[in-house]
């Protein structure tokens, strides 16, 4: 799965990258910093919204961004649906665990309207933010994400750590595949057995050992080439008028969402403020 992280795989054949594609999408031409700021503002505002109608509008906006980023429809939907099992469980249980007006009964358990709305609200927020995140940040190359975060003021050590991690995910993914092939060649078949779990433990241990040994070689090689602890960003980020315009438009749309969601606003009827979350 690591191939989704960027366009610098070391493998022999470049694999298709569903999210880090190079086709210039309308959103792809914007400065990555503008996109990161916009998605952060979007997430910050959307989690505070109450009315499901306004949240549906927010999801629609995120869908628009996804279309403008030319995200492939199938893989994107799959990523949105792949919520953690426990989150799905939590949402399914909410109607039955939230006190309030009963709406229907399932095996004698009353489901409350408030709980159903709370679950709907969480589902809408989670999907709107994930979609916006995939559209605005996920469509950029992973290294660009690191550079943009660095330019936005993230601590340089954290950015360096991020860039090193991104650089070596593919390499260690190949290490993992090599070890798995070696296991398969020795007739390893995963089962529910102590042997399986011990073998996976050895696999993980071996990956860590090889990672550390590789790191020693990397540091040696980098020192030979004059590495003093600083990676120089060779990007050409330049903030244009269109970036300011995009950010202003995004903030205006978010302000409109907040306005619609205000108590007494056109879309904040009985449903919005009925639950305690």
């Amino acid at each position: 799965m690591s191939h989704a992280l960027g366009g610098h795989a070391l493998g022999p054949e470049p694999r298709p990258e569903p999210f880090a594609h190079r086709r210039p999408a309308p959103l792809g031409r914007l400065d990555p910093r503008a996109r990161l700021l916009a998605v952060t503002a979007f997430a910050g505002v959307v989690v505070c919204l109450k009315s499901p109608w306004v949240l549906a509008l927010a999801l629609l906006l995120a869908g628009l961004a996804a279309a403008l980023a030319r995200l492939p429809v199938g893989p994107t939907l799959k990523r949105m649906l792949a919520m953690d099992g426990f989150v799905v469980l939590m949402l399914l249980m909410l109607p039955f665990t939230t006190p309030g007006t009963p709406m229907f009964e399932l095996w004698g358990l009353p489901a409350s309207q408030e709980g159903l709305l709370a679950a709907l609200r969480i589902g809408l927020i989670a999907n709107a933010v994930v979609l916006a995140l995939l559209a605005l940040a996920g469509a950029m190359e992973a290294t660009t994400l690191g550079h943009a975060l660095g330019r936005l003021g993230a601590p340089s050590r954290l950015v360096h750590l991020l860039l090193f991690t991104i650089r070596y995910i593919d390499v260690l993914g190949q290490e993992n595949r090599r070890l798995r092939t070696a296991m398969k060649a020795r007739a390893f078949r995963p089962r529910n057995s102590l042997h399986t779990w011990r073998s996976y433990g050895y696999l993980v241990g071996m990956m860590l050992v090889r990672a550390l040994e590789r790191a020693e070689r990397i540091v040696g090689a980098m020192k030979c080439r004059g590495f003093t602890g600083r990676l120089y960003c060779l990007d050409r980020l330049s903030w244009q008028t269109t970036d300011s315009a995009f950010l202003l438009l995004a903030l205006a749309l978010l302000a409109a969402l907040v306005g619609l969601d205000m108590p007494g606003g056109p879309l904040s009827d009985w449903v919005g403020h009925a639950h305690p979350v």
């Binding site: 790191a215 990397i218 980098m222």
Partner: peptide, 20 residues
């Protein structure tokens, strides 16, 4: 930092391993 990055990548890859 380079060693921490490589190990961080190793944990990232290891977290994609599915165990029966």
């Amino acid at each position: 930092i380079p060693a921490a990055g490589v190990l961080s990548a190793a944990f990232f890859v290891a977290s994609l391993i599915h165990v029966p």
